[in-house]
Nucleic acid binder design. Structure first.
Length: 562
DNA sequence: CGGCGTACG
DNA sequence: CGTA
DNA sequence: GCCG
């Protein structure tokens, strides 16, 4: 058993004394010494730009969201508003004089004063690292080591506390075997490589795009900032071949990639990027529109002006000679739901490109589940997608829904998806339905259970709080948001949760791993053996990993994409 | 040199 | 082909 | 574009 719960049991079995945060050196107490009060962190904003501050703040959140980090350290990080109340000071300042403009020297001597890298490395290794190596001021090295919250032991203390699975997995071939944090030390490089990837994707070079995607994914898990010293190590990474390595080398030397800038200045690239921002327009359609002479969103608006009924799928310029698509709208028709048109998508474009804060994701979940509760009792749900991976803002909202009654074999949720969507539509919460479908189980011989998964891709818009009466509340204006609802039969709930938590590269490699190394088939409606289609029904997320022979990876470390 | 995730509308 |  |  390598499930996280078995690891955690060490800290749960011993009930800690209600100690004030004072860490002892004994190995036994290392994981069990859970302190009550959070560890206060003060960020000295001098020498930090807005982007970096945002990054550091999100790192603090990330640390707290991470179950493993929490249980290993027993500590929650909290930002402090002033230096005096903080336990640890994080700064890029290196000079006494400069630091004294932000806190007085007497205070400084009572704290651990570390570089921003301490925070990055601590979050990524899921533990509070010794401060010695990260002391921001040489002059305060002794004080920093002494006041370091990690422990009061020797600087190399944590080596004995290394867990078996920590981060020596960064060079694994499969993304589902690597720890991929939300933010990594090489974001700048990755962003530039992502432009090359996007360019190839837009031009229809799917295979090359995939290669860049894999390389980016590997770099995402690389544990430190890449410099000239690391070239050998980087070239040894999987999915980094001669072509991509040369781009990375160029970046190390010049801090930039020529091809990246060339692409960004291409008018064609800019148009294709803009076109594909519209829901339903992909690379192929975008290229066709471009070849018609269209260049801007305004051009598209003109082009689609009169075609009220231009369905989103009918954007193809060169009709496929044969084989008209079976109307994708029949299901919607049955329920009296309108179909999605290009015109609608153009109108929604602005709203849908605005990121969704976590609080609003939760708000929408609450509204949806409240409505669902009025149709069927006993439903369970989980927000998956980027939200579950710890993103501060999401592109869309994914909710996996099932029923607590395992024995019902899916009867309790069968047909619920369409029923709920219809209800939400009638109430004006769901404004658009792009897609409404059901999956079939792989094994067609089985008559016992029907569809094990139902899916709806929708757009929602909550009513604004027109605060008559209370007057106090902020009058927040809601906008359109993308909401995906996935209904899973109880026995495939955990498979669906893993399947919809992502990231995309993580999912691809999960399937690839299952096939290549385990002879299994993984898809969100189930796990099966390839040769005899024997189905498995894991009863927890940990069991899914176990079944596939994978080490547990926390959702916040599944950010294997850009 | 074949394969690259998998399924649906 | 587009989407998750 | 990279891997087995």
């Amino acid at each position: 058993m390598t499930s996280p719960s078995s690891k955690r049991s060490a800290s749960e079995s011993i009930s800690p004394p209600p100690s004030k945060r004072k860490r002892s050196c004994s190995p036994d107490s290392f994981f069990s010494d859970v302190s009550e009060s959070p560890l206060y962190v003060f960020l000295v904003d001098a020498k930090l730009n807005g982007e970096t501050i945002e990054e550091l703040i999100s790192l603090v959140d990330q640390f707290n969201l991470n179950d493993t980090a929490k249980s290993q350290t027993g500590v929650e990080l909290q930002l402090s508003l002033n230096a005096e109340d903080a336990d640890i000071i994080v700064t890029e300042v290196r000079m006494r004089a400069r630091l004294e403009r932000h806190l007085d020297w007497v205070t400084a001597k009572q704290k651990a004063i570390v570089t921003t890298q301490w925070l990055r490395d601590s979050v990524r290794s899921q533990q509070l690292l010794p401060c010695g190596k990260y002391a921001a001021l040489g002059e305060l090295y002794e004080e920093t080591v002494h006041n370091c919250p990690e422990n009061n032991c020797a600087v190399d203390a944590p080596s004995k506390a290394k867990k078996e699975n920590t981060n020596i997995r960064y060079n694994h071939r499969y993304a589902c075997m690597r720890n991929s944090p939300l933010n990594c030390p090489n974001q700048v490089l990755i962003k530039k490589l992502a432009v090359l990837r996007r360019h190839r994707e837009l031009e229809g070079l799917d295979v090359q795009a995939l290669s860049y995607e894999r390389a980016i994914s590997v770099l995402k898990a690389f544990p430190h900032h890449i410099t000239a010293n690391d070239v050998q190590q980087v070239s040894d990474l999987p999915h980094i071949g001669p072509k991509i390595l040369s781009k990375i080398e160029e970046f190390i030397q010049r801090g930039d990639i020529t091809e990246c800038n060339d692409i960004l200045s291409e008018a064609r690239y800019q148009s294709l990027v803009a076109f594909t921002e519209i829901y339903g327009i992909g690379p192929s359609t975008a290229r066709n529109l471009y070849s018609l002479g269209l260049r801007t969103i305004e051009d598209l608006e003109k082009h689609y002006k009169d075609k009220d009924n231009a369905k989103i799928q009918a954007t193809r310029i060169q009709a496929p000679a044969k084989k008209t698509f079976t109307s994708p709208t029949s299901k919607l028709r049955e329920l009296g739901l309108p179909e999605m048109t290009v015109k609608e998508a153009l109108l929604l474009r602005e709203d849908l490109n605005v990121r969704i804060p976590r609080s609003e994701v939760e708000e929408i979940r609450d509204v949806i589940m409240n409505e669902l509760g009025q149709i069927r009792r006993g439903c369970v749900s989980m927000i998956t997608g980027g939200y579950r991976r710890g993103k501060i803002e999401s592109n869309d909202i994914d909710i996996v829904i099932s029923h607590k009654d395992l024995k019902s074999g899916g009867d309790e949720v069968k047909g619920l998806c369409a029923t709920l969507v219809k209800r939400l539509y009638d109430k004006g919460i769901v404004t658009h339905v792009m897609h409404l479908s059901s999956f079939r189980p792989h094994n067609t011989l089985r008559t016992a259970h029907w569809d094990s998964l139902e899916k709806a891709l929708t757009v929602v818009k909550l009513r604004d709080n027109n605060n008559n009466g209370t007057g106090q509340k902020q009058n927040q204006k809601h906008i359109h948001r993308r909401l995906d609802l996935i209904f899973a039969a109880p026995e495939v709930y955990w498979t669906a949760v893993v399947g919809w938590t992502g990231s995309i590269m993580f999912e691809r490699d999960l399937r690839f791993w299952a096939k290549q190394e385990k002879g299994m088939r993984f898809d969100s409606s189930g796990i099966s053996r390839r040769h005899d289609s024997k189905l498995y029904f894991p009863k927890s997320e940990e069991e899914v990993f176990e079944l596939l022979g994978l080490e547990w990876i926390d959702p916040t470390l599944r950010n294997a994409d850009m």
